[in-house]
């Protein structure tokens, strides 16, 4: 039994995320004023390698700034992702598509677990085939400044290929629109889930 979980399928990629926390932390990992964030990514086959560690580091940099870690000091927040399916359509961008889905599924699981957060994050994969560039953008979709949140902003970028400043700005605009679309879907899922959970109370 996890405190929160989510499964997400985007084309050939299926990911399962589970969140446990706040739970007891090992003395070695304890942080006096913050919760310790443990992120584990399990591959669909084989054992965890350097590639998964790299993904974990990227996922951490995307979601950790949004979690209010000071709300549960001296505890552990455990996020585990299981890659169920990830087809390598083109091996060059396999990491990017996986990363975008990983951010979305981790976010949904965090919301499901009721972890306090500043804002929700959506991520989108943008490919500029003509320039041979691939980007993943993560934009906040909730938490407007008027509500005390960090405001709409770019949280995460992972781009590679060959591009210039102009191309990047254009891609980021496409990414922002895509993030907002995915964000609407995410909000709908959360609303639907909350409605189902609260059905007995509404009657």
């Amino acid at each position: 039994m996890a405190d929160g979980s989510a499964q997400y399928t985007d084309g050939p990629t299926t990911l399962l995320a589970s969140v446990n926390g706040p739970i007891e932390v090992k003395a070695r990992d304890e942080i006096p004023l913050e919760a310790f964030l443990e992120i584990t990514i399990r591959p669909s086959a084989g054992v965890t390698s350097v590639r998964e560690k790299h993904l974990e580091a990227l996922l951490r940099s995307a979601i950790s700034p949004l979690i209010l870690r000071t709300m549960h000091p001296r505890t552990l927040l455990q996020i585990t992702l299981q890659i169920i399916q990830h087809e390598h359509a083109s091996s060059a961008h396999a990491l990017h598509t996986l990363l975008a889905s990983a951010i979305v599924v981790a976010m949904l699981a965090l919301v499901d677990a009721g972890v306090p957060m500043k804002a929700m994050l959506a991520a989108a994969f943008v490919e500029d085939a003509s320039a041979g560039a691939a980007h993943v953008f993560g934009y906040t979709i909730t938490g407007a400044e008027s509500e005390g949140g960090p405001g709409e902003g770019l949280v995460f970028v992972e781009s590679d290929g060959v591009f210039d400043g102009k191309g990047f700005v254009e891609a980021s605009e496409v990414g922002r629109k895509k993030c907002l679309e995915i964000g609407e879907l995410m909000k709908d899922w959360v609303r639907g889930k909350a409605e189902r959970d609260m059905r007995y109370r509404l009657k």
């Binding site: 990227l58 951490r60 940099s61 995307a62 950790s64 700034p65 949004l66 500043k118 804002a119 980007h135 906040t140 960090p150 405001g151 902003g153 770019l154 949280v155 995460f156 970028v157 992972e158 781009s159 590679d160 290929g161 060959v162 591009f163 210039d164 400043g165 990047f168 700005v169 980021s172």
Partner: peptide, 29 residues
């Protein structure tokens, strides 16, 4: 918050990595 940029010849960019905080595109530029 961290940003990493890999610059190529002719003022091109080969890699951008950003994470750890809420920012704007101007910052990355």
């Amino acid at each position: 918050e961290r940003v990493m940029v890999c610059a190529l010849e002719e003022e091109k960019v080969g890699w951008i990595e950003k994470g750890g905080g809420v920012g704007q595109v101007a910052e990355v530029m």
